[in-house]
Every structure is written in structure tokens, then in C-alpha cells.
């Protein structure tokens, strides 16, 4: 594996090996010495052509804990905001000797374009491309679910996960549907029909328009951020109606199974898709997701960058 562009790039075995690696690396993050020498001398560029504080910081922390040199190349104040093309940016990064580029971009497929082009030779890690995918987020979500609910199994067989909200525009949803189903979980998407893409019936998951019908028999519920612009685009009439049918509130929290967990990729719109008591309640693992994000991203960087990819035809060696 040279790049991480989509969950489709991963076999089930690959995905589990990332989760297992993250689990070992989490120990380091918990220990007194948070820095490992593993990626010393490697240069990693955070190419963030779209605002995203938390994903950028998470990757940066992961890279630094592995002793990589990190260059931040964000949209504000950089040449990206001045209309420089992806090609020119990539060639610049190549000239600077980047071993890996972590890219966040508003265009679906930007990461794949970077990887498939001959513009640069390093690894490309997709940190969210348009409305396509966000594989590291799905991996950290799977990691979190496994930790809480798998009872020691290395996959998610038998678990039921609801993903609720703006599926149409959500890269988190796309990556999670692919990954969680790959790991054996049953995924159900819950959204108003306007916020489900045409063609969603081909995805490996179930569809529901009714949160209350679903909520009592899921092990985990993942709330997606709903952007207020969607209202003016007529995806739903107004915020109040959206919250009433698709928001997570204390009544719905009470309807959940014992032990079921509440997740959110952040940033949250408190009061819209999730109420404060749901976000901060006992079932919530939202803060933990952030911590797990660093471990997962360390695992991704380790597996992509520590070894020599020329020998990596057959995956991970032991």
C-alpha cells in the first residue's frame, strides 16, 4: 500500500492491521514519552486546501509523535488561495522532497488525482476530498466502535451502526459505510430522502427515513454534521423540523440499547443534529474519537512510510 485514498484501497485484513497497529501505538500516546524515532528524517506535508483544524492537528500530532518533519501548507495565506493549480502545488511539494502528502481538498477525487498524476512521487493520504471519502475518520470510528463493543473480536461482526443526517454531502458517511460493512457490521443510513444520494441503494447498507424506528436496536449511532446552508438549498424546511425528526436528543438517548454509544465526527452543531446533553452524556464517545484519531493516523503514517514500499507487494510483514 503506497497511498490511502479510499476505503476501497483496503482489504479487511489491511483494515484490521491498521486498527491493531493503532492499538499498539495508543500505548505510546498514553505513556510518559510521547515521541518515537520511527519516522525521523521523513518529511510530511499537510496540504489543507480547505479549512479543517481538527483533522490537520490530528495528523500533525501523529506525524510529530513519530518524529517526522511536518510542513503545514494551508489554504489561508498560501498560494492555493491565490488560485495555484493542484499540479503546480504538487510539483512544488515534490521539489521540497515530501515523502508524503496529507491532502484535504474541496474537490472529490483530488487525492486520487494527486496520486495518479506524475506530478509527485510520494505517498498520498486522503484527509477528506469533497463529498467523496475521509478514510482516516472511518478508521478511527471503527477503532472506537471496536474498542467499546467488539468484546475482543478483531472485527465488528454482529454490530449494528446507524449513520444519521446529511449522507448526500458526507465523505465521513461514504467511508464509514464501506469500512464498517467490510468489517462485518450492519450499517443503516438514516436521513430525509433529500439528503440521500440517488444511487444509494447500491451501497452495502440499509436505508431508513425514520430515526425512532431505528434507534432502539443499534449498538452505535453516528451523527453527521448538518450545514445550515442546506436549508436554503431546500433539503429540509428549517432547523426545527430537522432536529425534530433527525436530531439526537435525550428522549432518543433513553430509547437506545444498554451499552450503545454516541459518536460524532465533529465539529458539532449543538442544538441542531445533537443536543448538548446527548453530546456530553454517558453514552458519548465523541471526545475519545479525537484521541483515537491520533493513534489511527500514527498507524497510517507508520504503515505507509516506515517500511520500504518496494517490498510491500504483499502487505505487512511480521
Amino acid at each position: 500500500m503506497k497511498h490511502l485514498l479510499s476505503i476501497n484501497d483496503l482489504s479487511k485484513v489491511d483494515a484490521i492491521s491498521i486498527l491493531d497497529t493503532a492499538q499498539e501505538l495508543a500505548r505510546v500516546s498514553d505513556g510518559p514519552m510521547k515521541k518515537l524515532p520511527t519516522l525521523r528524517g521523513r518529511t510530511i506535508v499537510n496540504l489543507f486546501a480547505e479549512d479543517s483544524t481538527r483533522t490537520r492537528i490530528s495528523f500533525e500530532a501523529a506525524a510529530k509523535r513519530l518524529s517526522a518533519d511536518v510542513i503545514n501548507f494551508s489554504s489561508k495565506g498560501s498560494s492555493i488561495s491565490k488560485g495555484e493549480s493542484l499540479k503546480d502545488t504538487a510539483q512544488t511539494l515534490q521539489a521540497m522532497g515530501a515523502d508524503a502528502v496529507i491532502i484535504r481538498h474541496s474537490a472529490s477525487g483530488a487525492a486520487q488525482r494527486l496520486a495518479d498524476s506524475k506530478w509527485m512521487s510520494g505517498s498520498v493520504i486522503n484527509a477528506g476530498d469533497g463529498t467523496h471519502e475521509h478514510p482516516s475518520q472511518a478508521l478511527l470510528d471503527a477503532f472506537t466502535i471496536r474498542k467499546h463493543l467488539s468484546k475482543g473480536a478483531d472485527d465488528l461482526t454482529g454490530l449494528r451502526v446507524a449513520i444519521v443526517g446529511d449522507v448526500l454531502h458526507s465523505r465521513v458517511a461514504r467511508s464509514n459505510v464501506l469500512l464498517l460493512s467490510k468489517l462485518g457490521a450492519q450499517v443503516v443510513l438514516v436521513a430525509p430522502p433529500t439528503l440521500l444520494p440517488v444511487g444509494v441503494e447500491s451501497w452495502p447498507c440499509q436505508i431508513s427515513y425514520d430515526l425512532d424506528e431505528v434507534i432502539a436496536n443499534v449498538d452505535a449511532i453516528m451523527m453527521l454534521r448538518i450545514q445550515l446552508e442546506r436549508m436554503s438549498e431546500m433539503y429540509f424546511p428549517n432547523a426545527r423540523e430537522y432536529s425534530r425528526y433527525f436530531g439526537l436528543n435525550s428522549d432518543r438517548i433513553r430509547a437506545m440499547k444498554a451499552g450503545a454509544i454516541v459518536m460524532h465526527p465533529g465539529p458539532m452543531n449543538r442544538g441542531l443534529e445533537i443536543t448538548a446533553d446527548a453530546a456530553d452524556g454517558a453514552r458519548s464517545v465523541i471526545v475519545e474519537q479525537v484521541a483515537n484519531g491520533v493513534s489511527i493516523r500514527m498507524a497510517i503514517l507508520y504503515l505507509l512510510l516506515a517500511g520500504n514500499q518496494e517490498f510491500a507487494e504483499t502487505g505487512v510483514s511480521s
Binding site: S108, V198, G199
Partner: peptide
């Protein structure tokens, strides 16, 4: 084209 492929790759569909 709006359909199965656009839903998967996250490009805005053209019905």
C-alpha cells in the same frame, strides 16, 4: 451522470 457511480464517488449528479 447522477446514479450509482456518482453516489459512490461523491461528484454532483446530473439527472
Amino acid at each position: 451522470n447522477e446514479g450509482e457511480i456518482s453516489s459512490r464517488i461523491g461528484l454532483k449528479g446530473w439527472p
